[in-house]
Amino acid sequence: MTNPPIDLPAHTGSRTTRLLGVAVLVGVVTMILLGFFVAPEDDLMADSVRMIFVHVPSAILTYVAFSVTAIGSVMWLWKRSVWWDIVAHSSAEIGVIFCGLTLITGSIWGRPTWNTYWEWGDVRLVTTLILFVLMVGYLAVRSMDGDESAVATRASVVGIIAAVNIPIINRSVEWWADRTLHQQSSITDGKLEDWTLFTMFLGIVVSGVFYTWAMTHRFRIAWLERELRDGDLGEAIAARRAEAAASGGVS
């Protein structure tokens, strides 16, 4: 059977992703204005407090993204769902970016606050680093040779191993360090100013919207790649066109 002539979509956008993209842009501009000009300096941390506008949302989204990867991994092994497999892969890629951002912003914040870029006594920092390395390993498995199903199975087991071992890694580092330098929750300790708290929460929302936007695009790219490999691109484009027509947008 021959496929219909291939008419590749110019992009993976739709009306929804455009709305999400615009929301992210507006959110980032608002965050810059609030973060630099409205939120006040902190009594203890001075200007470095502004780092939490990026650091805390990145950390939260890191754990959200890797949790989605773990769920997707279980669903692949359980239901053999290609949809969940692509979700797991896409979420891991975005999660690694958030995780890297968490580590970098944490280090930059640590320099003026703890007088060091890296503090081994900090449980969350060390656990997050191990999580980062584990997920880089997950992506390495994703790039290994082999048929799609075998790669998905391997990656799913790695995703589950990472998810199951993270609590025990966290516990071991906690006992090992005996103490933690890390800020106890910045959100609940009541020491942050109102505008600082608001900007940080806005950061969490903007990061969440960005995650959704990036996930949608990454998912569609991965889905199209798979369809292309399977020789069913014609069907995928028809489905995308129908989806765009239904939402009134142009694909």
């Binding site: 191990i130 390395v133 880089v136 498995v141 790695v158 990472a162 071992n165 890694i169 071991s172």
Partner: peptide, 12 residues
């Protein structure tokens, strides 16, 4: 790939 996967898991 094996050391990349195994060594972080063995951290505890």
């Amino acid at each position: 790939v094996l050391p990349i996967l195994l060594l972080p898991v063995l951290a505890p």
